[in-house]
C-alpha cells in the first residue's frame, strides 16, 4: 500500500541530505502535495502515480539543489565556515568543561589520600572517559532526524549552552586550582600536575585521533561513500 506521507518524508530527506534549508524544503513539499491533489482530483492518476509524476515535474533532488546553490553559492560557503567555527568553539567548550571535571577528579583523589601520580592518572581517566562519551553521543546525534528542527532561537540556545558549559568548566578549574595547592605538598601537586598535563595532551590528540579513524573506517565515512542513499518504497 502506497503511503504518500512516507514517500514525501523520504524525498524531503534526500533534499536535506544535499543541505537544502528546511524552509525551502517546506515550500517544495507544499507544491508537491498541491500537484498530487490536482492530479488525483482529475482522476488521471492513483496517489502513487501522481506522486511520481509530480516529483518528476518538480525535478529530481540532484537537479533541484544545485539550482538553489547557484543562487547563493557564497552563502553556502559561509554557512559551512560558520559550522566549522562552531565545531571548533564547541570543542573548546567541551575541553574546558572536561578539564574542570578532571581537576575535580584530582582533588577528590587527593582528598582520599592518594599519591600525586595516582591522582593525576585518575584525572586523565576522567578526561578520557568524558571525551569518549561526548564523541559517542556526537556520532549518534549525526544520524538524520535526531536534532530538533532549527528555529529562530536555536542559534541563541547553542551560544548560551556553549557559554554555560565553558563557564562551568572554568569555575571548576578555578576552584580546584585554589584548593589543591593548599591541601597537597608541593611535590605531590607537582606529580599530579605532570600526569594531568601529559595525559590531557595524549587524550586530546592521540586518543581522539584513534577514535575518529576507527569510527571513520568502520562506518565507511573515510572511504568517501558516506552519503546515505535511500529510495522511496
Amino acid at each position: 500500500m502506497f503511503d504518500l506521507d512516507a514517500a514525501i518524508t523520504d524525498w524531503r530527506m534526500q533534499l536535506a541530505n544535499r543541505s537544502m534549508a528546511t524552509e525551502q524544503i517546506d515550500e517544495l513539499d507544499t507544491h508537491l502535495r498541491d500537484a498530487v491533489d490536482s492530479l488525483t482530483e482529475q482522476g488521471f492518476a492513483s496517489p502513487e502515480e501522481a506522486f511520481w509524476l509530480a516529483r518528476r515535474r518538480l525535478g529530481e533532488p540532484q537537479e533541484l539543489v544545485p539550482e538553489y546553490h547557484k543562487v547563493d553559492g557564497a552563502l553556502v560557503a559561509k554557512r559551512r565556515m560558520l559550522w566549522m567555527m562552531l565545531g571548533f568553539l564547541a570543542g573548546g567548550a567541551v575541553a574546558t568543561a572536561l578539564g574542570g571535571l578532571a581537576a575535580t577528579g584530582v582533588s577528590l583523589a587527593a582528598a582520599g589520600g592518594w599519591s600525586g601520580s595516582v591522582s593525576g592518572l585518575i584525572s586523565v581517566l576522567v578526561l578520557g572517559a568524558g571525551w569518549l562519551v561526548i564523541f559517542m553521543w556526537g556520532t549518534r546525534m549525526l544520524e538524520p532526524g535526531r536534532w530538533p528542527a532549527w528555529n529562530a532561537r536555536s542559534g541563541w540556545a547553542i551560544a548560551a549552552g556553549l557559554l554555560l558549559i565553558t563557564l562551568m568548566g572554568q569555575a571548576l578549574s578555578f576552584a580546584n586550582s585554589l584548593w589543591l595547592p593548599r591541601m597537597m605538598t608541593a611535590e605531590t601537586y607537582g606529580h599530579s600536575l605532570m600526569w594531568t598535563t601529559l595525559g590531557a595532551q595524549v587524550i586530546r590528540v592521540n586518543l581522539l585521533l584513534a577514535v575518529v579513524i576507527a569510527v571513520g573506517v568502520l562506518s565507511g565515512a573515510l572511504r568517501g561513500s558516506s552519503r546515505p542513499t535511500s529510495t522511496a518504497s
Binding site: 525551502q24 515550500e27 517544495l28 507544491h31 500537484a35 515535474r57 518538480l58 525535478g59 537537479e63 533541484l64 539550482e67 538553489y68 547557484k70 543562487v71 547563493d72
Partner: peptide
C-alpha cells in the same frame, strides 16, 4: 519546468 521557479523566487527575494 516547475522546480526552476523556486530558485528564481529565492533569488528575487534575496
Amino acid at each position: 519546468s516547475e522546480g526552476m521557479l523556486y530558485p528564481v523566487l529565492h533569488r528575487l527575494e534575496r
